[in-house]
């Protein structure tokens, strides 16, 4: 990274959205720097298996997809800086970004920070983080060989991760707060094939994670249909209960966020700050899929090019 240089584009995040955008911008010789505070590939890199990314008829591992995207972007000259963007300021002809590697300037910026798992805010969750409470099955699942687990959530990630964890755990209780799954029918059908290991508890809240001698022993929930407290003996808990956008550092800018905190854009993926675009999971209305993040990345790259060529679209209010 060069702190004296004025980059054409800086992308915040290096998940599928930004890496796809970077393939397009760098192929057109648009000088592109990406900031990544975790792993290139983003959430795709920590997904065990991806069956719905076009062009891979047999599916592929999330890690392989992430590596492929990274290599393809780097092949055309994208530079990935490992660090975090802390703030963004509009300085008229350029944007100034404060980062953990220093200040850096760009003519245009792509917001592609995606989102992270929400904490559910129950007793025990923070205290036992990484010591029994987890948010990443591909990272931490291997520690639960021949153990019992609780998985919390009813969306695609929760179901997919519960299925992944059956390769380690002897038994999994899946606690779903609502009376139906948010996960796709395909995944719910797949889940049914694992009924020998996964017991689904619908209408069940997760109230407390209980440890004895620093080891998780149970999750206490409530069966909403009866109002009764229920104990789920377990060695660990994996929580996949919704996502929150990584937009905290945008709060004091003119960039508009929706009520949850996702970035609002117009149909050109422009935000309210001129020259700042958004793509992928961080964008309000995003469909939270790798293919759509990649597609939005490609669109954003073309819009960035138009902006850099001095053909901006008027920003809607």
């Amino acid at each position: 990274m060069d702190t004296d240089k004025l980059y054409d584009v800086i992308m915040i995040g290096a998940g599928p959205a930004a890496l796809s955008a970077a393939i397009y911008t760098t192929r057109e010789d648009i000088d592109t720097l990406l900031f990544e505070r975790g792993v290139p590939g983003g959430l795709a890199a920590v997904t065990d298996w991806v069956d719905n990314y076009p062009g891979f008829p047999d599916g592929l591992s999330g890690l392989d997809l992430a590596e492929g995207l990274r290599k393809q972007a780097e092949r055309f000259g994208a530079v990935i800086e490992l660090g975090e963007v802390l703030s963004i300021r509009d300085e008229g002809d350029h944007k100034l970004l404060e980062t953990t590697s220093g200040e850096v300037k760009a003519k245009a910026v792509l917001l592609a920070m995606g989102s992270d798992y929400k904490k559910i805010g129950v007793p025990g969750e923070v205290e036992y983080y990484a010591r029994g409470v987890h948010y990443c099955a591909t990272c931490d699942g291997a520690f639960y060989r021949d153990k019992r687990l609780v998985v919390v959530g009813g969306g695609n990630s929760a179901v997919q991760e519960a299925i992944f964890l059956t390769r380690f755990a002897t038994h999994i209780d899946l606690l779903v707060r609502s009376d139906h799954f948010r996960a796709s029918d395909v995944l719910v059908k797949e889940l049914a094939k694992h009924a020998d290991k996964i017991t689904v508890h619908m209408n069940t809240t997760t109230d407390e994670i209980v440890a004895v001698d620093n080891k998780i022993v149970k999750v206490v929930g409530t069966d909403k249909t009866t109002g009764n407290k229920v104990d789920f003996p377990t060695d660990g808990v994996f929580i996949f209960a919704g996502l929150i956008p990584n937009t905290q550092f945008l709060k004091d800018t003119c960039i508009l966020l929706d009520e949850i905190g996702f970035v609002l854009t117009d149909e050109h993926l422009q935000t309210r700050m001129p020259g700042v675009f958004a793509a992928g999971d961080v964008r309000s209305g995003a469909t939270m899929q790798i293919a759509s993040a990649a597609g939005e990345g490609a669109t954003a790259a073309l819009k960035l090019r138009e902006y850099l060529e001095g053909k901006p679209h008027p920003i809607a209010n």
Partner: peptide, 13 residues
């Protein structure tokens, strides 16, 4: 572990 993306990152770094 085989599936850990952050492990790849440490090794690559």
């Amino acid at each position: 572990t085989n599936t850990c993306a952050y492990c790849v990152q440490v090794k690559k770094w």
